[in-house]
Amino acid sequence: MEIVVLIKPIPEAESRLRATPDGRGLEPEGVKFVLAGYDESAVEQALLLKESLPGSRVHAVSFGPARCEETLRAAIALGADRATWVEGPPEGSDDPVLAARALAAALQTVPHDLVLGGKQAGDDEEGIVPGAVAELLGIPSFGYVTDLRSSGPSGLTFLRPTEAGVERWEAPLPCVVGLQQAWNDPRSAKLPNILKSRKAPILKVDWPTTSKALALEAKPRSIGEKFELPAPRTGAKMIEFKTPEEAAEKLVRLLREEAKVFP
């Protein structure tokens, strides 16, 4: 099976984030971008499928600025066979539809029986790219997926945990699947594979090629207006109590009189 996995570099969880001076975006300086969250689970899923289907290959694809290269190398260190960087516009872009169009254009020349991604990116959590890529490729798309397995040469089974229960699905290939996070305990890369990944080739589709293919002006169609950090949280209030009844009574009084959440 030819498995493509779409990945996006996102800020490391411990990063200290700041807004750019114009307040319209995230200041990338000093932030470490990594393969993490839903995408890490997607790579793990791709590798599990590859291991269960001999002869399969995993091709990691990332759209955006030069930092994509590090994320692709992380995927190679984990076990991806090939990697393609689809270069974004020089001024940067947060436009998910542009990302989907560029990725779908690149996938015209990349064999794909199955396209995996996180159900959403771990940073902006928009969740638009997988569905939009499927639409542009004219193939079905499924989101919120866990436990994906092959069911023969042309199909898949998977689960979709929803608030009402767990759905069991069968789907035809090719299709696009957006995966849930952390249900499959993503593996870590081994040091010798990290060293090998540094020397692996990364295919590049440059921005002029993409913009020509899409007949695009180099202009994203959505731009950030204002980027700010949430207000710092104020301290929690600890309730002192001796019995559960006393705790409940004090809590209800606080909710009613101070927080005013109900009359």
Binding site: R73, S188, L191, I194, L195, R198
Partner: peptide, 14 residues
Amino acid sequence: TAEQESLRDAARKF
């Protein structure tokens, strides 16, 4: 080097 950083990151994660 990028290689040294990625080794350090792997150790840090572990």
